[in-house]
Design a protein around this nucleic acid. Structure first.
Ligand SMILES: [Mn+2]
Ligand SMILES: [Mn+2]
Ligand SMILES: [Zn+2]
Ligand SMILES: [Zn+2]
Lengths: 158, 158
DNA sequence: ATTGCAAATGCGAATCATTCGCAAAAACAA
DNA sequence: TTGTTTTTGCGAATGATTCGCATTTGCAAT
């Protein structure tokens, strides 16, 4: 209990109609530990027996994102957007450059930095993006990842 | 003097052939104060009287990026990659959420944070992405920007 | 419950950035 | 100059995302 009416409120507050598809999407997203693509979500919903079209998944995610209910982000060198439920906890992610998994990290080290920027430049800070790249526990530090801007291909020796 | 042979070395070091297109691209990029899209660059080259195909621009940029000569990044909610010459200074950017301009900021506030992550999680840090969003000096703080994950549309009052 | 209108959806077609295939043109080592 | 390896041009293909439009749904006012 509570679950559905909670989404109901969330949607109503932003002038969005409460549809079963939106409930399903929000519920599925809230159960995801890691951010998912629109298509991942579409497949998951289908598996759960929900009849929905991929366009609707895209449209809902975009709407929910614009209303701040869902966070949309891009993994560099990965041509798909990923979405996650916005828990309204300010957090960042660690992204595995091998398997592309994203895991959240709570907390933010940037308060000072933002102040520094506002004081040094004529720029009004409204937010930031921060992700850390590397190898997740599953992938170890095997040097087999695809190339990333953060760790370009080396060419020293032989 | 110096300029061309410098690119020559950069390319040779990474086993890339030194072609006039790659020189043109590197030169154009190095002259850009802000990151540009493949198409921006293509247009710029054309204006400079250089005959090149858009595919080649994409291919060169990708190659140069994989070799670490060029940095490729994505502006959230903007569906194009942007490229900049890699000056090998570790730096980040301020991105205007109204006009999409990116300006560099030297320095990095994340050394501590990376240590923290490695010590707390079983994750090997290899790099990071950090951009700050807000209004550039030209755009002031007029609240007219398109929506961004960092500052979703509000719906309070009225 | 019924009605009426705006918002949401399904479906397929369209977009648009980016990638690919392949033949022709460089680059460069020998 | 020759031969081999890369790079390039061109257009076609790809793949994620968006759009158009007819139909259905949510929901507020009867
Ligand atoms: Mn933060
Ligand atoms: Mn940094
Ligand atoms: Zn991994
Ligand atoms: Zn601006």
């Amino acid at each position: 209990m509570g679950a559905k009416s909670h989404y109901n409120d969330v949607l109503k507050e932003r002038n969005l109609k409460a549809t079963k598809h939106r409930f399903a999407i929000l519920e599925a997203l809230e159960n995801c530990k890691i951010p998912v693509t629109a298509e991942d979500l579409y497949i998951k919903l289908k598996r759960d027996g929900i009849s929905i079209s991929l366009s609707t998944v895209y449209r809902c995610l975009e709407t929910l994102h614009k209303k701040g209910i869902v966070i949309k982000s891009n993994i560099p060198d990965y041509n798909k957007a990923v979405f996650e439920y916005n828990h309204n906890e300010h957090r960042h992610h660690m992204i595995c450059i091998k398997c592309h998994k994203m895991q959240p990290v709570n907390g933010c080290p940037l308060e000072e930095f933002e102040k520094f920027i506002e004081s040094k430049f004529d720029f009004t800070v409204k937010g930031h993006n921060l992700e850390v790249y590397g190898y997740c526990s599953g992938c170890g530090s095997k040097e087999t990842a695809s190339n990333y801007s953060c760790c370009p291909e080396r060419n020293e020796g032989s």
